[in-house]
């Protein structure tokens, strides 16, 4: 009689679990994705491409890329700085800072957007002085960038803090005792040790930055061709019954996400040895 490996479950149970997993993934992940693409192409490839060439659509794509290009590097720097401080130093209020970093995750994005309206909007704290100085933040690019930075702030830091805490301070202390300056220690010891976590955090941050809807929706003002990002433009088109256009833009968003994931897998596959080597032994 063939004996089961001690930790292996009953074949029926395994089959059941597999079926559940596959159908959940299929139903909730793959099917919607497929719908997006099929709706976009429902009137042919040409119609979908035409929808993307429309000036408002192009401006939305451009704005989204621009916002991500500003917000992601900022958050990468903030995230590294915050996790470096939390993981490598002891100071008062460290726990509080850690909680604060999680704040954007626990607040509704709409509220995050409203905060900026209350601060920088016309009726807000700085509203009048900003108007006098002729600086536009709300219903303009700076507001969209601010809201995006706020919402995507935790991604890099959350990825790096556990990693850096786990790695400890030994290597940094060793580098210091060998004569390295703080900057040299960071560049040559800390950064190489966290680069994969950092990359992962940056990719997640980027995906969210391009896809953010709620917070951006509040501060953007929905000016077509000017302050509409891709997710906002999808909504506008959808409400106008322009399904092909809406789903064409949605496809581009989905494609950007897929490219991000493929990129990450490729890097992981290519550098598998190095990733294994930088894990704690």
């Amino acid at each position: 009689m063939k004996r089961r490996y001690p930790t292996q479950d009953h074949p029926l149970l395994r089959l059941l679990l597999t079926v559940i997993a596959v159908s959940v993934i299929g139903l909730f992940l793959l099917l919607p994705l497929a719908t997006v693409f099929s709706q976009a192409l429902s009137k042919g490839v040409v119609a979908a491409l035409e929808a993307l060439k429309e000036p408002d659509a192009r401006s939305a794509i451009w704005l989204t890329l621009l916002v991500a290009a500003i917000a992601v590097p900022l958050n990468a720097v903030f995230g590294v700085a915050a996790s470096w401080a939390i993981a490598k130093f002891d100071f008062r209020g460290k726990q509080f800072l850690t909680t604060l970093i999680d704040l954007p995750f626990s607040i509704s994005p709409v509220v995050s957007g409203l905060i900026y309206v209350l601060i920088f909007g016309l009726q807000g704290w700085f509203g009048e002085s900003l108007r006098d100085a002729n600086i536009k933040i709300i219903f303009a690019l700076p507001g969209i960038v601010l809201a995006t930075v706020f919402v995507t702030f935790p991604f890099v830091a959350r990825e790096l803090i556990p990693l850096m805490v786990d790695q400890g301070r030994d290597e940094e202390e060793a580098a210091t005792s060998l004569g390295a300056s703080g900057w040299q220690t960071f560049l040559r010891v800390t950064l190489p040790n966290i680069k994969w976590g950092l990359l992962y955090g940056v990719l997640l941050c980027n995906a969210r930055a391009m896809g953010e809807f709620g917070a951006v929706s509040v501060v953007s003002g929905h000016i077509r061709g000017l302050t509409n990002t891709m997710p906002l433009h999808v909504e506008v088109l959808y409400n106008d019954y322009q399904y092909v256009g809406a789903f064409a833009i949605a496809s581009v968003l989905a494609l950007l996400a897929i490219v991000t994931l493929v990129l990450k897998s490729l890097l992981e596959w290519h550098f598998a040895d190095e990733i294994a080597a930088t894990h704690r032994h």
Binding site: E171, E173, A174, A175, R188, P192, N193, T278, H281
Partner: peptide
């Protein structure tokens, strides 16, 4: 300085 857990630069 030599550490108990070596503290070698893993990368």
């Amino acid at each position: 300085f030599v550490f108990q857990q070596y503290a070698l630069f893993k990368h």
